[in-house]
Computed example of a mutant assay.
Amino acid sequence: MKAVALAAVTALAACGGGPTRRVVTDISIGSGQSVQGSFTGGAVPLLGDTAPHVWTSGHPYNLPVHGVDVSRYQGDVNWHQARASGINFAFIKATEGGDHSDPAFRRYWAETRAAGIPRGAYHFYYFCRSGAEQAAWFMANVPRERGALPPVIDLEWNHQSRSCPFKPSAAEVRREVGIMMSMLHQYYGQRPIIYTTVDFYRDTGVRNVGAEFWLRSVADHPRGTYPGQQWSFWQYTGTGTAPGFRGNVDLNAFAGSRAQWNRWLATRSQR
């Protein structure tokens, strides 16, 4: 396991414009190896990483609003402790394909609400079911609830799938995803967010479906891995740590300031 130590000093600018701090870090990795780096904004000191990346093009801790995405593999979570440590939102796996639901979804859904953490549900897309079937399955399992975040469609190639080796064309992907998005939008009253990975984004042209994006980029800032693409959420590590979680957890950052986060919540939460 790698240890990370951060030391900070103040100075200048941040995400979204306006006067802010500059933080200079001394990142110690493993047995005494040290890397100097600087980034704007402020670190979230209680969040960590068991396999930290040395960011050279925009540090995720530039951004003040962080959250997690979870599934049953996280086990028991102390959500009150997570919230107190700086976890501002959670995306919870609800469904996959047309017949699988995550066994922890309903428990996490209730626990995050009790802890006062804004949360939304996500669906892992399966390429051997139609978009309409998958939308119907998601709607059967995820309640319409005032204050919930928009539904999320998780789009990534699943190269290890034993039950569905099918890899559809880019045009078919966009068509079926578009159908699912329309159905979820009509049912939940908010247009879904698309989560995706670099290779899926590149292969399918999913940028053209007119969605708000949550992007996975664990070795570079999204502006480097998804040039020109606007985004609202950035999944920056799969080996994160946070109080309330017993093991690793995916960590994510929102693209703006706290004021912008509050405006986003007011606009994009279900009514």
Score class of each variant (00 low, 15 high):
63 L>G: 00
158 N>L: 12
122 Y>M: 03
73 Y>K: 13
64 P>W: 00
149 L>K: 01
158 N>D: 13
52 P>E: 06
77 V>N: 10
55 W>P: 00
75 G>S: 10
85 S>H: 10
141 N>Y: 00
187 Y>S: 11
98 G>K: 13
185 H>W: 14
87 I>G: 03
147 G>P: 06
155 L>M: 12
162 R>F: 06
161 S>H: 01
160 Q>K: 13
122 Y>R: 04
170 A>N: 10
136 A>C: 03
166 F>H: 15
144 R>L: 07
119 R>Y: 10
131 G>M: 09
137 W>P: 00
184 L>Y: 10
179 I>P: 07
124 F>L: 14
71 S>Y: 03
111 E>W: 02
128 C>H: 10
155 L>Y: 03
142 V>N: 06
167 K>H: 08
154 D>K: 04
130 S>L: 08
103 P>C: 04
145 E>T: 12
145 E>D: 13
174 R>C: 13
96 E>N: 12
75 G>Y: 06
177 V>M: 09
95 T>R: 13
148 A>V: 02
121 A>H: 09
76 D>Q: 14
55 W>A: 04
171 A>Y: 10
55 W>V: 07
95 T>S: 12
131 G>F: 12
150 P>I: 02
54 V>H: 09
140 A>P: 07
77 V>W: 05
110 A>I: 07
178 G>H: 04
59 H>D: 15
140 A>H: 13
87 I>N: 05
172 E>K: 15
107 R>A: 11
123 H>G: 01
160 Q>V: 05
75 G>H: 06
140 A>E: 14
183 M>G: 06
128 C>Y: 06
180 M>E: 14
123 H>L: 06
125 Y>F: 15
71 S>M: 01
159 H>Q: 05
79 W>P: 06
136 A>F: 04
151 P>I: 05
163 S>W: 14
163 S>H: 10
81 Q>W: 03
79 W>L: 09
111 E>A: 11
68 V>I: 14
161 S>L: 04
100 H>V: 15
133 E>R: 13
132 A>E: 13
131 G>H: 09
185 H>T: 14
91 F>G: 02
152 V>P: 01
121 A>Y: 03
89 F>P: 01
70 V>S: 05
88 N>C: 13
184 L>I: 09
109 W>Y: 11
127 F>D: 08
82 A>L: 08
149 L>I: 01
180 M>Y: 08
151 P>V: 03
112 T>S: 02
107 R>M: 08
127 F>A: 10
113 R>T: 14
82 A>Q: 08
152 V>G: 02
133 E>G: 05
141 N>C: 00
102 D>P: 05
168 P>C: 11
90 A>M: 08
82 A>V: 11
157 W>D: 03
129 R>V: 10
165 P>F: 07
81 Q>E: 15
153 I>C: 00
89 F>L: 05
136 A>W: 07
113 R>N: 11
91 F>I: 15
132 A>Q: 12
153 I>H: 01
181 M>A: 11
148 A>F: 01
148 A>G: 02
122 Y>D: 04
101 S>R: 15
168 P>L: 11
65 V>C: 03
144 R>I: 06
68 V>P: 00
185 H>I: 01
147 G>C: 07
154 D>W: 03
111 E>T: 06
